[in-house]
Design a protein around this nucleic acid. Structure first.
Lengths: 140, 140
DNA sequence: TGCAATTCGTTTGCATACAAACACTGTGCT
DNA sequence: AGCACAGTGTTTGTATGCAAACGAATTGCA
């Protein structure tokens, strides 16, 4: 009387489906914006939106922990898309801001980024897209 | 007449929201099943469901590419949860199967795994959970 | 039969992600 | 002033995840 695999169906588990949808999204993104990754673009978008931020605050604003945001900022700096400088007011902080190249890249690519989101949800109707985002937002 | 950040709102982008929901799910998972990761558990579930598989087929059945599934199988083998052996029929293949410990772990934890999925979608009603899975499945 | 194309596994390089430990700085309270 | 506590950034270790290149084995087709 083994439970066997019981009623557990991997394909119905939210985590597994999330992983597959994310994979497809990342694939669409890298095809359309090969210069940077999704997380790097998120950082550029936040900097364009909020202006210069400390590395830690920037991480919080983009849902990355300290170790992760450091790696992303380092790579963006190596690409010349952001610039870092010590904060004069608080010597613990590392201020991060968009470079001219970073701003230019973001502005030239933001339309493509919106297109990527659209492509990702292309199989859904307009109403379904709204539903999906609303449901996902409840799980944040 | 700069487009500024235009209408691009990071928080409304499907990719960003997916990443945040996935983060929350991974956090719930590791709290409830600390022995293995989500991907490792997915491999155990597939092996329990399908029986012994070649490493590559196993990767396809769990949505991992060759490099990724190799790493996951290696770590599961190091934990003693799976066993590998060369395939007699096809000498390119590496056959992977559950160990006794792997089967025992899966059977003892599969209920918790289902509970993790439930916790992840806890903010949703029953109807919404069905909706969400249906919508996400269309994006696979 | 024999060779081209494919499949399988491996390795390397790069990019998230998180936990934990650490040093340094700032703040608040006494 | 001094000290506990919190915040910030760094580093290390571990675990996905993908691209690309490679060798070995198999298959399909001329």
């Amino acid at each position: 009387m083994l439970p066997e695999t019981a009623g557990y169906r991997l394909d119905d588990q939210i985590g597994y489906v999330l992983r597959k949808v994310t994979q497809r999204h990342l694939s669409i993104f890298s095809e359309n914006i090969p210069e940077v990754t999704t997380t790097q673009f998120a950082v550029l978008a936040r900097l364009a939106e909020l202006g210069p931020q400390s590395q830690n605050l920037l991480g919080r604003a983009t849902a990355m922990d300290g170790a992760t945001i450091k790696g992303v900022v380092d790579r963006l700096a190596r690409l010349g898309l952001v610039e870092t400088a010590p904060d004069a007011q608080d010597r613990r902080r590392l201020s991060v801001c968009l470079s001219a190249a970073g701003l230019a890249l973001f502005q030239s690519r933001v339309g493509d980024a919106q297109g990527i989101s659209d492509k990702t949800v292309a199989p859904l109707s307009a109403a379904e897209r709204v539903q999906l985002l609303a449901l996902l937002n409840k799980l944040t």
